[in-house]
């Protein structure tokens, strides 16, 4: 579990708590429940109550001041007919590709090459340095990654267009973030860049668990590198792949900072995401009820995803361990 946090990023889902499954033993005495009091009160105040309020507000029309008017499910039916709502979730699918699918696939290959080839043939030091290189973007605050890329992709003074122009490739220069045809893809490239180091680190640490004799056995059976990678390595680090896929998918659902800094959801709704859509309704349009409905839908999706994952993982664990 700790390894999943090595990356200095938030691992949002882990294994089913091992503590829960253990049979209770006689307690050493003393009232431990008291220790839970500060944490429970704090959670009640900062998490439970606001969450319940948010769900309540989603059934009202409210500008944030004055009294809220109960309108039942109207906000939700309005969502179903709102083009921006659908756009924000369509865009999220693209961001899941950029944050979860592509980094996981690329990360698998890179981790395997670094661990199995570079570390053994060239030296573990080289592998470590390369790993750190891939990982560096992960340590940045998301807003700062937005600043870096906002400048590189800027149409008038951005580095990318300047480089293209200097190389005589003016025709390739684009308004990368301002043109609806390219904006979402530009954001996706930036997210792949940001996210790639996390699976590389996770998978490399997972590969250390793989029993070398499995590889040897496969080599004797005449399996090539690619087969060994696919049949053994990928199979053995399935738990890490699960964790990476779920944490990055949930992270993609929550993306806010990069969009706020880079595009504000634009042009039009080309890069709109649910969290920014909710933010707009809360703080720019004073449609608090509607914003709450968006936030509630997002929450339900994330919780369902997490619960499904925990179930799958719990089943896998039982199968693997027993």
């Amino acid at each position: 579990m700790v390894t999943s946090t090595q990356a200095g990023r938030r691992p949002e889902v882990g294994a089913v708590p091992a503590v829960a499954r253990r049979r209770a033993r006689p307690r050493p005495g003393g009232s431990y429940a008291l220790y839970l009091l500060p944490g429970a009160l704090l959670s009640l105040l900062v998490i439970v109550m606001p969450l319940a309020m948010n769900v309540g507000i989603s059934f009202t029309r409210w500008s944030g001041v004055g009294s809220a008017e109960w309108i039942g499910l109207e906000n939700y039916t309005r969502l179903l007919g709102d083009e921006n709502f659908w756009a924000s979730f369509r865009n999220i699918l693209f961001l899941i590709v950029a944050m979860a699918v592509v980094p996981t696939l690329l990360g698998l290959v890179l981790a395997a090459v670094l661990f199995d080839y570079v570390a053994k043939q060239i030296g573990p030091r080289t592998a470590k340095v390369l790993r750190s290189g891939f990982y560096l973007p992960q340590v940045l605050p998301v807003a700062v990654t937005g600043i870096v890329w906002g400048w590189i992709l800027n149409p008038s003074f951005g580095a990318l267009n300047a480089i293209l122009t200097n190389a005589g490739l003016d025709s390739l220069a684009r308004n990368w973030l301002g043109d609806p045809a390219y904006a979402l893809y530009s954001v996706m490239v930036m997210l792949v860049w940001f996210q790639l180091g996390y699976p590389v680190v996770m998978f490399m640490s997972g590969l250390q668990r793989v029993d070398p004799s499995l590889y040897e056995a496969a080599s004797i059976d005449g399996a090539g590198w690619w087969q060994r990678f696919w049949r053994i390595a990928v199979h053995q680090i399935k738990p890490e792949i699960y964790v990476v896929l779920v944490t990055t998918t949930i992270a993609a659902l929550k993306v806010f900072g990069q969009i706020f800094v880079l595009t504000r959801g634009g042009p039009g709704n080309a890069t709109l995401v649910p969290s920014y859509f909710a933010y707009q309704n809360f703080f720019e349009r004073a449609q608090v009820g509607y914003g709450s409905a968006i936030a509630t839908v997002l929450t339900v999706i994330i919780v369902v995803l997490a619960v499904v994952f925990l179930r799958i993982q719990a089943r896998g664990e039982r199968r693997d361990l027993l």
Partner: peptide, 13 residues
């Protein structure tokens, strides 16, 4: 679950 909730669902309250 509290840890993975989207902050948007807590922000306005």
């Amino acid at each position: 679950l509290a840890n993975l909730l989207p902050q948007e669902a807590l922000a306005y309250p």
